[in-house]
């Protein structure tokens, strides 16, 4: 058996790969930002004690976490289409990924809130901090700081999971690969390259989150605690 690898024909298409990688990153960034917002709101709702809000949040989290992303994407895609409005694939992909990661983020941030000792809030009250001040400096930021590593890993996994949106023809990295391999008949080379590209993207994201963590949590930077 003679194995004959030829990366030349694939590498010629580098502009397509770059545009696919950019779309993958765009999807990841949009879903990360919106997902964090949903996560904070969801965590507040789940801890609010309000009977309706708690249940709605719990239903959202459980239904998303116990069904595959692929099926969620199809549901959003065909659900939006059945409204009679035609959305571009990118919008559908971003919406589905946001809804998906929002549920995981809710759980992670909730764990962060749970980890804030009550005495710390009482101490802040004793120091006559205002309610918003307490909420931001004593509850929110330390909670996010505690779960920051878990959050960032989740977002890297989200970036990888965005490959599934190729199934509704969002033109991200995996979709580009599918197109190029069907054009060049060089499937092995194409997917190896794309796998390497994903590893590189996840390293880039990890580095970015590390830098962001240094900026966001100066206390930790001063103490030298690793993120």
């Amino acid at each position: 058996m003679k194995i004959n690898l030829d990366f030349g024909a694939i590498l010629e298409r580098w502009p397509s790969f770059v545009s696919g990688a950019i779309m993958t990153l765009e999807l990841a960034v949009i879903a990360t930002v919106l997902g964090t917002a949903i996560g904070v709101l969801g965590a507040i709702a789940r801890r609010s004690g309000h009977p309706v809000a708690t249940r709605v949040a719990a239903f959202y989290v459980e239904s998303i976490r116990n069904t595959p992303l692929l099926v969620q994407i199809f549901l959003v895609y065909f659900g939006l289409a059945s409204l009679g409005v035609k959305f571009p694939a990118f919008t559908v992909a971003a919406a589905a990924l946001t809804i998906n990661v929002g549920a995981y983020t809710t759980e992670i941030i909730r764990a962060g809130f749970d980890a804030i000792p009550k005495a710390q809030i009482e101490a802040a009250e004793g120091l006559a901090l205002s309610k918003p001040q307490i909420y931001w400096h004593v509850v929110m930021l330390p909670a996010i700081e505690k779960v920051y590593p878990a959050l960032t890993s989740q977002f890297v996994l989200l970036m990888l999971a965005s490959s599934v949106t190729s199934q509704i023809s969002a033109e991200e990295l995996t979709a580009v690969a599918n197109y190029i391999q069907s054009d060049t008949y060089r499937a092995f080379e194409t997917y190896i390259l794309v796998a390497i590209a994903y590893v590189a993207l996840s390293l880039v994201m990890r580095a970015g989150f590390y830098g962001l963590g240094l900026v966001m949590f100066p206390r930790r930077r001063r103490l030298g605690t690793p993120l």
Binding site: L160, A161, S163, V164, S166, T174, A177, N178, Q181, A187, F188, Y191, I192, V194, A195, Y198, V199, S202, L203
Partner: peptide, 13 residues
């Protein structure tokens, strides 16, 4: 660092 989807495509195609 690689999506499962890409691993699937790599083995199958």
């Amino acid at each position: 660092g690689t999506p499962l989807l890409v691993i699937m495509f790599l083995t199958y195609f």
